[in-house]
């Protein structure tokens, strides 16, 4: 038997390395118009958050008129009740929520992945303990837990980030743990155990590389949820407070003028919604491309 006889049994040849610009799942994702819309929206918001102070026409705290004025040439979206330029405030309105969400969720995904890998691979009483703890944290509705923790931790950027990390870690643990249980049952892990590989090596070299798609999806899903929750907190008057511009807070303030100037409410509402919709549309495509189903992220 020569090696030639095997040639006919090879699967269709993979495209040559040069032709592969992007990983296959991403190329697949980009075929969906919804995913593209999502990615465009997310990029727009990230750029806006980064450069808002540079490109905004006025400072967010400068008082320019006496009280609320309608849109004009000088102030495209008018000025708010205190007389600050509304467009400039609108452009900066997502910065804190986005920053806090990114920082907190990133920490949650890292912590959650480590705990989930460990619990899922080791099993036993430790797994039981971790799972019951996540059950308990997740039994408290996210918004309430955030509100209670903010009461004790405070409202600074770092403390908000810690609160987000605490609130979102259990969900990540569950998702990663569920996938790890499935992976740990596979024979390549038996092979690693048979070789006598160390626990960290099995967790981080054998198991973790299989979770990259899921982790990316988790990061994005939790981010969109965190942005929503932080904004809701500001809307309730329990989160980010004046004079920092924030979409949730701006919606709340605009409710008093909803009868006369609904535009003041609609503008920040569009800002916030388009950010969250952008993330969710992008996640939807990303998840499908990586074969991550809704049931994977809700184990």
């Amino acid at each position: 038997m020569t090696s030639d006889t095997f040639a006919q049994f090879r699967p269709p040849a993979a495209p040559p390395a040069k032709a592969r610009r992007l990983p296959l799942p991403l190329r697949r994702a980009l075929r969906s118009p919804m995913t593209v819309i999502g990615l465009v929206l997310v990029s727009f918001h990230l750029l806006l958050a980064l450069f808002a102070p540079v490109i905004a026409p006025y400072s967010v705290s400068a008082i320019l008129t006496t009280g609320l004025t309608p849109p004009s040439g000088a102030h495209w979206l008018g000025t708010d009740q205190i007389g600050r330029d509304y467009l400039s405030r609108l452009m900066s309105g997502g910065r804190i929520a986005l920053l806090v969400s990114l920082l907190g969720v990133f920490a949650a995904v890292v912590t959650g992945a480590v705990l989930g890998l460990f619990a899922g691979y080791r099993g036993g009483w430790l797994d039981d303990l971790v799972m019951r703890l996540t059950d308990a944290v997740m039994a408290v509705p996210e918004l309430l837990l955030i509100a209670v923790l903010v009461l004790t931790f405070g409202k600074e950027i770092w403390s908000l980030s810690i609160v987000v990390a605490i609130v979102y870690t259990p969900g990540v643990v569950r998702v990663i743990r569920a996938r790890t249980v499935g992976l740990a049952a596979q024979d390549f892990i038996r092979a690693a155990e048979l070789r006598g590989e160390s626990l960290p090596r099995i967790l981080f070299r054998e198991l973790a590389p299989n979770l990259t798609g899921l982790l990316a999806v988790e990061l994005a899903i939790r981010c969109s949820s965190a942005v929503l929750k932080i904004s809701a907190l500001s809307f309730l008057g329990l989160g980010i407070s004046q004079p920092t511009p924030d979409w949730g807070l701006m919606v709340q303030e605009a409710m008093t003028v909803i009868f006369t100037d609904p535009w003041f409410l609609i503008a920040p509402a569009i800002g916030l919604s388009s950010l969250v919709i952008g993330i969710n549309f992008a996640v939807d495509g990303l998840a499908r491309a990586y074969g991550v189903s809704e049931t994977d992220t809700n184990p």
């Binding site: 024979d187 390549f188 038996r190 092979a191 299989n210």
Partner: peptide, 16 residues
């Protein structure tokens, strides 16, 4: 002492 497993796909790490 080494072993070869039943399901070849499951016995090779898909991420490697």
């Amino acid at each position: 002492v080494q072993m070869v497993f039943q399901d070849p796909l499951s016995s090779l790490n898909p991420a490697q």
